[in-house]
Each structure stands twice: as structure tokens, then as C-alpha cells.
């Protein structure tokens, strides 16, 4: 098949960028989207031009490195699929494909299609953990967790931290990322003691870097792991409750 690629090139954060057009002739539909970029880069190197920088690693849809805006959609047209798992057979033959980096104030550009997503790490560092120093754990089966609870926590924990939710959001908000981690930990019994401080710290850190959520729902549609926007409701509810809560009583139920 044939494709025309319009690729964003930008030598560094302070340099203006531009689109570059490349005709990709006779490429196999079984090729993955990143292999298309491998092919392009081999060609550029052969022509003595610098290859396109892009983040990628596992190429199995789990590490969350890949991050391409494909025709205005994070990770492209296939639902629930990261860029690395997108194959050319899902694109129309002869199409022109525009590829850009994640566009969000919270993710500054490093080069070409590579952005800096360390703000996500700052949100986790602010409270996205359960305090359990090594060695202090009780026997694993002493903590009974109903299957439904474990499953729901796992649904949230499936987040790969790619940032598609932020890139899709008209406000550049990171609510879905933050809510997914918050829900994973706070649905579990182990996560209860720190629940109310966790929600306040994570939300405050998130707001330092990202825009505000206005319930567009674009994040859920863009998420390669199809994480539900319902978790944002949990995050918002708990954030409000935390402001009103007497933390000294937090260990009690109800």
C-alpha cells in the first residue's frame, strides 16, 4: 500500500517546528505503524538526513513509551490500541497521515515526536503509592479482597502512563491518569489508611502541571487501555470528601 506521511520535525524545545512530507510507497499492510517509521528512518539515514526521533520501547502496548498523534488522535484510529500495536492494515490505502507529538502544556517537546512526561512521575511521587516498607507485610492471604474489588482495582491499574488522555483533552487535563492510579490504590483495603491524604496530594500535584477537567470524555475514547471515566467520578467525590473529613477517624468504616 501507499501512504503519505506528514511528520512534525522540531530540533529542540526552543526551536520552531515544521511538517515534513514523505511518500511511503509499496509498504506492507502487515507492518506496524512504528515499523513504518523504522523504514522511513532507514531511508532518511541513507539520504544523509537525520532520522525522526520518537519514543518507543516494548512494542507490545504495555510500556507506554510510544506517543504519536495520528491524524489528530492519540495513538490513531483503532480503539484501545497504542501506536505500536497499530498496523497499517487498519489505515486506508493512499491516505495522507499527519503525525505529531503529544500536544499539551504539561508535556514539553524534547525533539520531533518526543515529549517530556515526567510530570506523571511527580503525581505518583506525591501520593500514588501505599506505604509498605519492605519486610513489614503480613501473609498475603491475611488480606481478603473480594474478587470484584480486585478486578475493579486491576481495571484501573491497567493504565500504562502513556499520556494519551492528556493529549486528547481540549484542556490538557490529566484527570484520567490520576484517577486510574488513585482508584487502583483506593479501592483496595490496603489503600484505605492513606486514602484521604493521597487524594488531596495527588490532585494538588496534578493541578500544578495540567489543565482542569471539564468532562469532555475525550480521554476515555483515546485511552489505549480503555480505562473508564467513572474513575474520575471516584477521584472527584473523594477529593471533596477529603476536604470535609476528620482524618483522625479515617480508619473507621462508613
Amino acid at each position: 500500500m501507499d501512504l503519505t506521511l506528514r511528520v512534525w520535525r522540531q530540533a529542540g524545545p526552543e526551536v520552531p517546528g515544521h511538517f515534513e512530507t514523505h511518500e511511503m510507497r509499496d509498504v506492507s499492510p502487515d507492518m506496524s505503524f512504528l515499523e513504518l517509521f523504522d523504514t522511513l528512518n532507514e531511508r532518511l539515514i541513507a539520504e544523509g538526513r537525520e532520522p525522526v526521533a520518537f519514543d518507543h520501547d516494548c512494542r507490545e502496548g504495555i510500556c507506554g513509551s510510544c506517543s504519536m498523534m495520528i491524524n489528530g488522535r492519540p495513538h490513531g484510529p483503532e480503539r484501545g490500541t497504542a501506536t505500536c500495536q497499530l498496523h497499517l492494515r487498519k489505515l486506508p490505502d493512499g491516505a495522507t497521515i499527519t503525525v505529531e507529538p503529544w500536544r499539551a502544556a504539561g508535556f514539553p517537546i524534547i525533539r520531533d515526536l518526543v515529549v517530556d512526561r515526567s510530570a506523571f512521575d511527580r503525581i505518583i511521587e506525591a501520593g500514588g503509592y501505599i506505604t509498605a516498607p519492605t519486610g513489614s507485610a503480613p501473609d498475603a492471604n491475611e488480606i481478603l479482597i473480594p474478587k470484584e474489588v480486585a478486578d475493579a482495582a486491576m481495571d484501573a491499574a491497567a493504565c500504562i502512563g502513556c499520556g494519551a488522555c492528556v493529549a486528547a483533552c481540549p484542556n490538557g487535563a490529566a484527570q484520567l491518569f490520576t484517577a486510574a492510579k488513585y482508584a487502583h490504590l483506593s479501592l483496595l483495603p490496603q489503600g484505605q489508611p492513606e486514602r484521604w491524604t493521597r487524594v488531596v496530594r495527588m490532585v494538588r500535584e496534578m493541578e500544578r502541571w495540567f489543565g482542569s477537567c471539564t468532562n469532555h470524555g475525550e480521554c476515555e475514547a483515546a485511552c489505549p487501555k480503555e480505562i473508564s471515566i467513572d474513575f474520575i467520578a471516584l477521584l472527584n467525590r473523594d477529593y471533596v470528601k477529603a476536604q470535609l473529613r476528620n482524618r483522625a477517624l479515617a480508619g473507621q468504616r462508613g
Binding site: 503509592y129 501505599i130 509498605a132 519492605t134 519486610g135 513489614s136 507485610a137 503480613p138 501473609d139 498475603a140 492471604n141 488480606i143 481478603l144 479482597i145 473480594p146 474478587k147 480486585a150 478486578d151 482495582a153 486491576m154 491499574a157 487502583h184 490504590l185 483496595l188 490496603q190 489503600g191
Partner: peptide
Amino acid sequence: EIIDQCVAQGVPFAREYGGL
């Protein structure tokens, strides 16, 4: 001990209906 540690951290391992 690894399994104990990971459960305490909140790793959502698969569970039986009884919660084990």
C-alpha cells in the same frame, strides 16, 4: 515473602470469589 510484600503494596493479583 515477595508475594506478601507485593500484596501489601497493592498489587492487584487475581483472586478467588472468597477473596483469597
